[in-house]
């Protein structure tokens, strides 16, 4: 893989002026953001602001009409989703989207679908089970029959099985009991500490800003605010709108 203009130490992901349309609806109106190596970057904002659409532009499900998405210095705009996964971006989608009639093990296997190095497969499965011991107990269970929290663990584990160079997480805390939310966020920090950059989409802005290095606030298809997570947390506008104060 050739290093692009940004060089090897540049950002892992660089999105510049991306526009996405759903039919006639202009869903993303020129999004620009970056994820650096080793970072947790969070994308927060209200429902319908375009957070998930941004992820869908990155993973290839929605092709941007305009703008550029670069991953490790290479242009990936317009690349089909399966090739993007092979390139090193994996995702835990909103609403978990497990394969309900497959076992936990089979779901994890699907996460590694694009990998050719089958010898490390068992090792990675062990690593996921270390992060989520609960999944080990349930590995033969059909994914659709597990609780929401267990399913979320499985969805994150499945994304990790791809050995991603960038992990996209879409609303990992949605619909979970507080105790599970805390576990999930602890795991995100742990995964990042082991070297994987994370782009985290969240409605739970407070938790997200707690674990992130930097954050972007989206409003109706645009980036309204950006900055270090610590600064966003004390920003009045963010506090008033997303942290339920004011």
């Amino acid at each position: 893989m050739s290093t692009g203009a940004s060089g090897p130490s540049g950002p892992v992901l660089e999105i510049a002026d991306v526009h996405v349309y759903y039919g006639a609806i202009h869903a993303l109106k020129g999004i620009s953001l970056e994820v650096g190596s080793g970072e947790i970057v969070t994308l927060i904002g209200a429902n319908g602001a375009g957070k998930s659409t941004t992820l869908r532009a990155i993973n290839g499900l929605n092709r941007p009409r305009q703008g550029s998405i670069r991953f490790q210095g290479q242009e990936i705009t317009g690349t089909p989703p399966h090739a993007i996964v092979k390139g090193g971006i994996s995702q835990s989608p909103e609403g978990r989207r497990l394969f309900p009639r497959m076992s936990v093990t089979e779901n994890l296997e699907m996460g590694a679908f694009q990998r050719d190095d089958k010898q490390n497969f068992a090792e990675d499965m062990e690593r996921v089970f270390e992060l989520f011991p609960r999944l080990k107990e349930r590995r033969m269970q059909k994914a659709g029959t597990m609780s929401g929290g267990e399913q979320q663990m499985c969805a994150i584990g499945r994304a990790l099985m791809a050995r991603p160079k960038l992990l996209l997480l879409d609303e990992p805390s949605m619909g979970l009991a507080p105790i599970f939310v805390e576990r999930i966020f602890e795991t995100i920090v742990e995964v990042n500490r082991q070297g994987t950059p994370v782009l985290l989409v969240e409605q739970n802005a407070l938790m997200a800003l707690d674990v992130a290095n930097r954050g972007y606030v989206m409003e109706t298809g645009r980036i309204a605010l950006e900055g270090p997570a610590a600064e966003l947390k004390v920003n009045e506008r963010v506090r008033a709108t997303y942290l339920g104060e004011g």
Partner: peptide
């Protein structure tokens, strides 16, 4: 088989299968 499991995954959730790197 890998391809067979990919088929089951696409049948259960096509979009999620694409996100896992399965060529739909």
């Amino acid at each position: 088989t890998r391809q067979g499991k990919g088929m089951r995954a696409v049948a259960q959730d096509t979009e999620a299968a694409a996100m896992m790197g399965i060529d739909v």
